[in-house]
């Protein structure tokens, strides 16, 4: 039986585990053992700022996908199966176009002379174009768009398993629709919110192309720090140490979330 796992396992070990170990090694070895790279992360402002900004963006994106995704998942879960599949298909559809294409599409929409600004201008709502892109705002909008399915799908999976009888019981016992929602439905959908939030948060932490294209150099996320260190300064040690710290953060988040809900649920297996 376990032989069936061997090919996949071999690929994972060769292409993921080995490079990761090599990365970790790089971060602490440069002409002898050194913690210089880590000291720099802790002491230099640019690193601190980047990590702070990355976490802030991840937090905003997570909150925004939750607020936007919850109603969608709710509608999909309460519709008859045939219709809910259509709603979910519409949520997943953007998956089939590349992240790069979508980032450029947002650029076209949001830039100074873009569709949104020119429309607002022609309607007389604004005189000076709004700065919608080449900043954190543009990064957040595009990232939310790309990661929304990762929030909607776990939410839908959880909601769809909440028996309709429970909300009916809540109503028959005297609960108004909002009382039943906040006391019964929302608490029972919490595992889906946590699962979706962890996925979106962790994916945002590592986002690269979107902030690179839409951040306009003002948004400096951790992934870009890694890329600069390698491409510009050829500093593999610095890049490796940043990656290791980011990976540690991700593990910490997963560990914290797994204390709240079972791991298999976090992975969307249930």
């Amino acid at each position: 039986m376990f032989l069936l796992l061997t090919p996949a396992l071999a690929v994972i070990v060769a292409l993921l585990v080995v490079p990761l170990l090599w990365l970790a090694w790089q971060s602490v070895y440069h002409n002898g053992f050194t913690l210089e790279n880590y000291r720099r992360i802790l002491t230099e402002d640019i690193y601190w700022h980047s990590f702070l900004q990355t976490f802030r963006i991840a937090f905003i994106v997570t909150a925004a996908t939750a607020l936007l995704g919850y109603p969608v998942a709710y509608v999909a879960a309460s519709l008859p199966r045939r219709w809910s599949i259509i709603v979910l298909a519409m949520v997943v559809l953007p998956f089939w176009t590349s992240v790069l294409v979508r980032a450029y599409a947002w650029l076209i929409l949001l830039q100074r002379t873009g569709i949104i600004n020119s429309t607002l201008k022609s309607l007389g709502l604004i005189d000076v174009p709004l700065i919608l892109v080449n900043n954190e705002f543009g990064t957040v909008i595009a990232t939310v768009h790309i990661l929304l399915p990762f929030m909607v799908l776990p939410l839908y999976a959880t909601m769809q398993k909440i028996p309709a009888e429970l909300t009916m019981a809540g109503a028959s016992l005297g609960g108004t629709p909002s009382h039943v929602f906040f006391r019964v439905f929302l608490p029972l959908s919490l595992p889906g919110i946590i699962a979706g939030a962890v996925l979106v948060f962790v994916l945002t932490l590592g986002f690269y192309i979107t902030p690179e294209l839409l951040g306009g150099g003002r948004t400096f996320m951790v992934s870009m720090l890694v890329s600069r260190n390698v491409e510009l300064y050829n500093e593999w040690g610095a890049a490796s140490s940043i990656s290791v710290v980011l990976l540690a953060c991700v593990f910490a988040i997963f560990w914290a979330a797994s204390r709240l809900i079972p791991v298999e649920r976090l992975m969307g297996m249930r």
Binding site: L166, M168, A169, G170, A171, S172, G174, L188
Partner: peptide
């Protein structure tokens, strides 16, 4: 609406709130 009827319902699968 159901919540204004004052009817106690016992459902087939109990419909207890698991949380």
């Amino acid at each position: 609406p159901p919540h204004k009827r004052d009817i106690g319902i016992v459902f087939q699968n109990y419909a207890l709130f698991p949380h």
